[in-house]
Structure formats: structure tokens, C-alpha cells
Design a binder for these strands. Structure first.
Length: 888
DNA sequence: CCTGAGAAGTTTTTT
DNA sequence: ACTTCTCAGG
């Protein structure tokens, strides 16, 4: 069943260990064992009792609930080091899954540091997806693929779906491919085949053809010998269910399973994990080989036994080639610290003993940091761990090593407003009277917010703080721009983390399509992408002809092209052009084996005319694109072959950043998870933005709680200083809106919060010809809240909220001036923003003399709904919302 | 084939 | 309000 197991060249198992093993029971081994007993290994020192327990509880299921900053990664890596150095397993017998490549990389590095060089990497440490790819490359034929299948990214997927929608004769305007791609993704996150999707979902798209379309999509992928990201999880699941013998090999193989960020697992990942982590019960196993078995496990997870039970017998029949190979290596193996790998099979006898070995799963996570519900993560997975794995040991890590007590106190009080938590309380023993409280600041608008934060950062810079220790964490990426603009004018270094990816750029994707087609002539998506890029006179008509020709014969388009140029089906001009393309690719394909890949890549881009195309392009971005192409070639150097590079890009999609520069980090709260900074700025704490209106609309109470967890994540990123900001006016989609401070501000504990009073250094805001700013006044926070817009916001709120939330009111921000409105309800869909677009007749008349806080006095020149055009005495003509001016 | 007008969509993001 | 993409018409 698992043929091809050993002859796929892409991945090597661990290299053979170097040192010979001391004879079992020999003097040296006994001495070492004694030494191990007497002396705790270095890597265990410095762990607190809970961490130690999490590291040393190696048998049975373990759930580690690790609050923010409690040493989660340290526990994981130390646990692995412990398993390895006590010889309980080889690196290749440990399955360790993370969500991001970054986390996987970090873990590898840290394990390397702990155990030294003796461990040459861990072949099964990686993201769910990269491990999925590895499994699939080995067993591709079991799910109807070839092992050289391509991995499609979202862009490819959307284009493919668009083709399918058109092929169905549907209007691709009415039924956007992108939307359907999203639906498929959601289904796949839940582990659903086309046959399993809810009827409602199936009907919701394409005149009820949702299900057919999904099925057609899956078929097309198989024809293309391709996978989307979801398939990287689902195919292995299918494969394991249909082939219990293959699954058994992996049960035997993986003694220890570790999962990072368990709160982020979606249903598919959960299914995947349970398949690998739970051996079937003895009873089930007896009929495991029966064909019906795969079917029987369909309704899983509900009917699967929860206990990772031991097997009743060793069925010596299926020790795989791989397993034997591993056992062979075991003969000569030495664990990193020199101790013999005790439980490694050394004889036929211990091989069968091994078959009784239980699989030890350890999941690490924090329910309070679950912020990916919107993309299918199921917090529930972590909440029901004990049910899934009876007898599980649950260890809470609550001792925080990162933040001051004020920061922790603020975060804890905030998150306590969530229900349905497992309930942890972080604490720290480091208290220092000098520690700053969490600061809450108000600003007039987002521009001022950016300016003030910019100044504060310059202040820190003058105090010799590293910019690298400072971060601005925003809720939505559009907030970043204002900071970037400001920092550019200030000349302050910054780096934006996240954002558009290198490998998603047009020119990079084009170049990659060339490379893909060279390596993989059946890659139709790549073919279509570049067949006429640069322009070769192979327009729609030619491509359609090719497409039809290929479909009719069920061959790839490249093959169709090769055929069709032998016929006279095309016009001479197109035929010649196509002939050239085909000959080019054939030539490059032959060079693949002989020419160094970077050289070949360059050659491809040059000879295809792709480079020339951008050189001829006179647009502003052309030079940048050329630079990116050079960068692409450069980044290939680190890889052995074009194929290896393609694989890496498909999975990683990320190019690393320049870490050398001292710069402020700007990123979203989501991408900040797992990071820490001395000083953290959290701008934009306003209703509607944070919590985000859409999260509330679509997620209801759960949505609100997830937003609150996001706030929690934000605050807990800070080690020493945390500055929260909100503004009264923000431009959203071009419209200025008055905003209300976030309800999360009310949920901060007054004891740990300090509301910023007037700060001399802010005195300059709003001057520069605009007349008076709020900050020019004695109480900077008082007057802004007396504007009509503000008052209206107040009114809206008190109407909407007057009642029942007796818990507490927001004294934290009381001094800012809106505390008098009293307790608020915990409304989810309240009137959150004083809507500036009303259709009521204006309160103003043309010619009225008015005052605006920012622009000063002026006369109304025109009225358009609630928008006023005003000739200001000092600031000139401006359009403003009527909420922001007062008659004088 | 190129260009410009019009439409649509603007939470969070990995793989 | 702004950007980005699509498509129609030159």
C-alpha cells in the first residue's frame, strides 16, 4: 500500500547517528544512567514547578494552558529536548505541529540550542500544512494524485473556480469566484467533502449548484494533479481513513505528538490530529483491514473512542519498510546526550513491544488568545480536550515573565469579562513601584493620534530606547497608513509586518509560473498565466482553442500546444508564436538537469522576454518589479533546486525581513500574537473599529468575546509600557465619523490605568494656523466632548443602553469626560457610532457664523445634507460635518 | 492591443 | 474617499 515510501527523493529521514551505541546493559550505559539520575540536566534548571511538570509528564495526554508570557515555547522546546536526550524517541518519532512557519523555525532553532548539534533537525516538526505535504508526497497515489502534485495558492484557486463557473454557463459577476473560493475554504476547514456540505450552503451559491461546483472543483484539481491548501489537510485524513494499515505505520512511528497554539486548530486539523493521536481500540482494530472500516469511521469524531488505548496484540505483519529502516538505524543510534535510546527497538522483540507503545500527545494553548475563530478555529477543541483524552493531565502556566503587574492587571481585568473561559489568572512576582500604569489617551482624530504617538516614540528614542522594542498594534490595516505617513515625515524608521506578501506580487507570480511550467508541464494554470505574458499575439482566441483541444483529449494544455503546432488549426502567426513558446520551454526543461537553477531561472526570464517586458515598461513601478525579480533569483540561491524552491514558496509564501535595522514595528493585533515589546501602542480603541462592527454583526456575542481576546493579546504584548489611544473622529471609507470610545476601555481596572492628562509636549497639536486645539485648553478632554457631535453620540448611547449592566462603570476613563452617562449595557449591536449621515434638515443656514474646534471660526458657504462647506477665517474653505461645528 | 471610464470592494490572515 | 479591477471602445 505504501509503496514509494522509500524512493521519493524529496525528503530524507534523519541522517544516521554517528557514534556507536554502548552495548545495552554495558558498564558505560549504566554509568550514564546513574549520572542522569543524579544530576538534572541543564535544560531543566530554571523552569518553575508547573513548567517542569509540563516538560516531565511525558506519558499520557497533557494539556498545557499557557497564558501570555508564561514560557509556552520554552516548555514545548524543552519537552522535546527532554524526550530526545532521555532517549525516549528519535527525532523522527516526534511529531510537532505549529501553525506558522515562523513558529516552526523558532522551535527548530531553540531545540537546536538545547540539545546541541547531535540532532540534525526534526523531520516531522512543521506546520500542519507542510507535514500534510510530506505525507501526501509519500502516499499521493492513495488519494488519486501523483507525488509531484502542485500546490495552488489562493490566486490560482480563484482563477480556476472562475473558469469552472464560466464553464457551467453561469454569470461570473453574479457569482464571484472569490466568494466561492471562500466558501470552499470554510467547508474544508470543517473537513467537509462536497457530499457533506449542508444543504443550505449548497443552495446558497450559483442557483443551487454549490455542491456540484465544489465537486467539479475537486475533480479539476485531481486532473491538474494539484492541491489547494485545504487539501493538504483533507487528503491525509481521507488517506488515513481509507488505509488503516498506512495509519498504523504512523501510529507506530509517532510516539510523541506536540501541538502548539492548540486553541487555533480548526475542525479539519482536529480530525487529523485525532487520527494520528489515537490508536483504534482493540475491537476496532480486529476489523481494521475490512473494507467497511473506512466507511465506518466516517461519522467520526463522535463515534471514535476517546482513549488512546493500547493495542491488544502486535500484528507483526505490517512492520513497514520505513519502520524497519528506522529500527536498523536504531541499532547504531545514540541519543544526543550519549545515553542509549532506551525504548528504541533493538531487536525483533522490542519491535513488537513498541507496538504497544501509547502515543503521547501534548497540546499547548491559551483559550484567551483564540483570535482566529473567523477563519475556522474552534476554541472548543481546547475546551474539550479532557473529554477527548480521558485521564489527560491539565497543567496551567500562570506565572508571567513578561509584563509588569499593571499591564497584567489591566489585561486580566479586561479578559475576565469573557464567559466560557477555562479561567487562568496571570501573576508576576516582579513588582516595581516605578512601573508605569497602562496609559489611556484621547485624541481629536486619527491624524493627531499618529502625531502624538510619533512624538512619544521620539521621546523614547531620546531616552535611548531601541525602536525595535516599540510596536504599534492596530486592529485593521488601514490604520497603518496614517502612521507610515507620519513616520516618513518624521524620518522615523518603521517596518510594517504582514501586509502584501512578496510572493503574491504580480511579477513574482508570473516568474514563478514560468518556473512551475518548466518543472511541471502539466501545470495548466501556470501555462495560461504566462502563455501570453509578455504579449506574443496569443490572445483569447488562441488560448480558448488550446483549452478546448486539451479538454477534448484530456491532456494538459502544454501538451495540447505541442500537438497543435503540428496541425494547421491555428493561423500562421499564432502557430509560429506558439511554436516558439513550446520550443523555449522544451529547451529549458532539458536544461533543468544540467544548469544551476539560479542561472536557469535568469535565463528563462531573459529568453522569454519577461525581463525585457518590464524594462520597456515606463510606469513608475517597473523598476521596483525588476528589483523584485532580482531579489527572487537571489532568494533561490539558498535552495538546491528549482523544485525545492517552488515547494518552499508554495508553503511559506514569505520572505524574511531585514532584522538589522532599528525600527518601530507596525502590525495588526493578529500578527502580533506571540511577540513581545517593551513599549506597545494600541491606537484606535473606538466602538465600531475595536471591537470591530463587523465582528459584532456577524459574530454576535462570540464575536465580541473574540474582539476582547484580541484586546487582551494586544495588552499582553507589552513588557513595560502600554499606551492605549482612542480618537473622537475617524475617517472610515472616506467619511468622517464621530466615534465613541471602545467599551473595552470601560473594562480596564482603574487601579492599573492612568488617563493621560494634558501633556506639555502635546501643546503644539492643532496649532500651525488652525487656531485653537483642544490641547491648548486647561482641560484638554473636557471641551471636545461638548461638541454637538459628541452630545449626539452621548444621547444615542444613553438611549440605547440605559439599563441592566450593573457590574461597574468606566471609571478608568471617567475623567475623560463621559463617565456621567452611567453604567452601560453590554450591548452587542448598540448604536455604536453617531452616524454622521442623517437625512434630517440641517440645523444651520447658509451664512451662519460657526466655530469649529480645529479650524476656528468661519461662515457657512454651502449646505449639503449634514456636510457644510465653510469659509474659515484662518484655515480657508473646508468641508466639515455639521456635528463638528457650533453656532457662535 | 491599449487606455480610460465605471464598478465594486474596502477586518483580521496562514497555509 | 480611494484604490483596484474589469471591460468596452478606440
Amino acid at each position: 500500500m505504501s509503496k514509494g515510501f522509500d524512493d521519493i527523493p524529496f525528503f530524507d529521514e534523519e541522517p544516521a547517528p554517528r557514534k556507536p551505541a554502548p552495548a545495552a546493559g554495558g558498564i558505560a550505559a549504566r554509568a550514564m544512567a546513574a549520572r542522569d539520575k543524579a544530576k538534572r540536566p541543564d535544560y531543566l534548571s530554571g523552569l518553575n514547578p508547573e513548567q517542569t511538570e509540563a516538560v516531565e509528564t511525558l506519558e499520557g495526554p497533557v494539556l498545557v494552558l499557557a497564558g501570555a508570557g508564561t514560557g509556552k515555547t520554552r516548555v514545548l522546546t524543552t519537552r522535546i529536548a527532554h524526550i530526545l536526550s532521555t532517549g525516549r524517541a528519535f527525532p523522527s518519532q516526534i511529531l510537532a505541529v505549529t501553525f506558522t512557519n515562523k513558529a516552526a523555525r523558532e522551535m527548530k532553532e531553540r531545540i537546536g540550542v538545547l540539545v546541541g548539534h547531535a540532532v540534525e533537525g526534526m523531520p516531522w516538526l512543521g506546520t500542519f500544512h507542510s507535514i500534510g505535504v510530506k505525507l501526501l508526497r509519500r502516499h499521493a497515489e492513495l488519494v488519486g494524485l501523483r507525488s509531484d502534485f502542485t500546490i495552488l495558492d489562493t490566486d490560482d484557486v480563484v482563477r480556476l473556480i472562475k473558469q469552472l463557473i464560466q464553464a457551467e454557463g453561469l454569470d461570473d459577476k453574479r457569482w464571484p469566484a472569490k466568494q466561492f473560493a471562500g466558501m470552499i475554504d470554510t467547508w474544508k476547514n470543517k473537513g467537509l467533502d462536497p457530499s457533506q456540505i449542508p444543504e443550505g450552503d449548497a443552495r446558497a451559491f450559483a442557483n443551487g449548484k454549490g455542491r456540484e461546483l465544489y465537486a467539479a472543483y475537486q475533480n479539476r484539481l485531481l486532473t491538474l494533479n494539484a492541491c489547494d491548501f485545504g487539501d493538504l489537510l483533507l487528503h491525509p485524513i481521507r488517506m488515513f481513513r481509507a488505509n488503516p494499515d498506512v495509519l498504523r505505520e504512523y501510529h507506530d512511528k509517532f510516539r510523541y505528538i506536540l501541538v502548539d497554539e492548540y486553541q487555533d486548530t480548526n475542525t479539519a486539523q482536529y480530525m487529523w490530529l485525532r487520527l494520528l493521536a489515537q490508536r483504534p481500540r482493540a475491537k476496532t482494530e480486529a476489523k481494521a483491514a475490512a473494507p467497511g472500516e473506512a466507511r465506518a469511521s466516517r461519522s467520526w469524531p463522535d463515534d471514535v473512542s476517546s482513549a488512546p488505548a493500547e493495542r491488544s496484540r502486535a500484528s507483526g505483519d505490517s512492520v513497514s519498510a520505513n519502520h524497519r529502516a528506522e529500527a536498523r538505524r536504531g541499532q547504531a543510534a545514540v541519543a544526543p546526550d550519549g545515553a542509549p535510546p532506551r525504548s528504541e527497538p533493538r531487536s525483533g522483540d522490542s519491535v513488537s513491544a513498541n507496538r504497544h507503545q501509547q502515543i503521547n500527545i501534548c497540546c499547548v494553548g491559551d483559550d484567551d488568545q483564540s483570535i482566529y475563530g473567523w477563519r475556522g478555529a474552534e476554541v472548543d477543541n481546547i475546551l474539550r480536550f479532557e473529554k477527548d483524552f480521558p485521564g489527560a493531565k491539565v497543567i496551567k502556566l500562570e506565572r508571567n515573565y513578561r509584563s509588569t503587574e499593571h499591564i497584567l492587571g489591566a489585561a486580566a481585568h479586561l479578559i475576565a469579562h469573557n464567559e466560557g473561559r477555562l479561567g487562568k489568572t496571570l501573576f508576576t512576582e516582579r513588582t516595581n513601584p516605578d512601573d508605569e500604569k497602562v496609559h489611556v489617551h484621547a485624541a481629536w482624530d486619527s491624524e493627531e493620534e499618529a502625531r502624538a504617538i510619533g512624538e512619544e516614540i521620539e521621546q523614547l528614542q531620546r531616552q535611548k530606547h531601541n525602536l525595535n522594542d516599540i510596536a504599534i498594534l492596530v486592529r485593521a490595516s488601514f490604520q497603518m497608513r496614517e502612521f507610515e505617513d507620519r513616520f516618513v515625515t518624521l524620518g522615523l524608521n518603521y517596518r510594517v509586518i504582514g501586509g502584501p506578501r512578496f510572493y503574491e506580487r504580480l511579477e513574482i507570480r508570473d516568474a514563478m509560473a514560468y518556473f512551475r511550467l518548466v518543472c511541471q508541464p502539466a501545470d495548466d494554470l501556470a501555462f495560461e498565466r504566462i502563455v501570453n505574458t509578455p504579449k506574443r499575439g496569443l490572445g483569447d482566441t488562441t488560448v480558448r482553442t488550446l483549452h478546448d483541444y486539451a479538454r477534448a483529449r484530456d491532456i494538459p494544455m502544454f501538451a495540447a500546444a505541442s500537438d497543435i503546432i503540428e496541425t494547421d488549426e491555428l493561423k500562421p502567426k499564432a502557430r509560429k508564436a506558439l511554436f516558439d513558446v513550446v520550443t523555449d520551454f522544451r529547451r529549458w526543461q532539458t536544461l533543468l538537469e544540467t544548469t544551476p537553477h539560479t542561472e536557469l531561472a535568469e535565463q528563462i526570464l531573459d529568453e522569454s522576454g519577461y525581463t525585457a517586458m518590464w524594462q520597456a515598461d515606463k510606469s513608475a513601478e517597473a523598476p521596483g518589479r525588476l528589483e523584485n525579480l532580482r531579489e527572487l533569483i537571489r532568494s533561490m540561491e539558498a535552495f538546491e533546486s528549482l523544485r525545492g524552491f517552488l515547494e518552499h514558496v508554495a508553503l511559506v509564501m514569505d520572505a524574511e525581513q531585514n532584522e538589522d535595522m532599528d525600527a518601530v514595528s507596525i502590525m495588526t493585533l493578529h500578527s502580533a500574537k506571540g511577540l513581545e515589546f517593551d513599549t506597545v501602542f494600541l491606537p484606535g480603541w473606538e466602538e465600531g473599529l475595536f471591537p470591530h462592527q463587523r465582528a459584532l454583526d456577524e459574530g454576535g456575542r462570540a464575536g465580541l468575546e473574540e474582539e476582547r481576546r484580541l484586546a487582551y493579546v494586544g495588552i499582553t504584548r507589552a513588557k513595560r509600557r502600554c499606551h492605549i489611544w482612542f480618537v473622537s473622529n475617524r475617517r472610515i471609507h472616506g467619511l468622517w465619523q464621530s466615534t465613541m470610545p471602545s467599551r473595552f476601555l470601560d473594562e480596564l481596572p482603574i487601579d492599573h490605568v492612568e488617563v493621560a492628562e494634558q501633556d506639555v509636549s502635546y501643546g503644539g497639536y492643532g496649532r500651525g494656523g488652525y487656531g485653537q486645539s483642544r490641547f491648548d485648553k486647561a482641560d484638554p478632554f473636557e471641551n471636545s466632548y461638548q461638541t454637538p457631535g459628541w452630545k449626539r453620540a452621548q444621547q444615542h448611547r444613553s438611549e440605547a443602553t440605559r439599563d441592566n449592566w450593573g457590574t461597574r462603570s468606566g471609571h478608568a476613563v471617567e475623567r475623560i469626560g463621559y463617565g456621567e452617562s452611567g453604567p452601560r449595557t453590554r450591548m452587542i449591536e448598540g448604536e455604536l457610532v453617531a452616524k454622521s449621515t442623517t437625512s434630517e434638515p440641517s440645523r444651520f443656514n447658509i451664512g451662519d457664523r460657526v466655530f469649529h474646534l480645529k479650524f476656528g471660526n468661519g461662515n457657512i458657504a454651502a449646505i449639503e445634507g449634514n456636510k457644510l462647506t465653510i469659509d474659515f477665517d484662518r484655515a480657508g474653505q473646508k468641508r466639515v460635518l455639521d456635528g463638528f461645528v457650533e453656532r457662535v
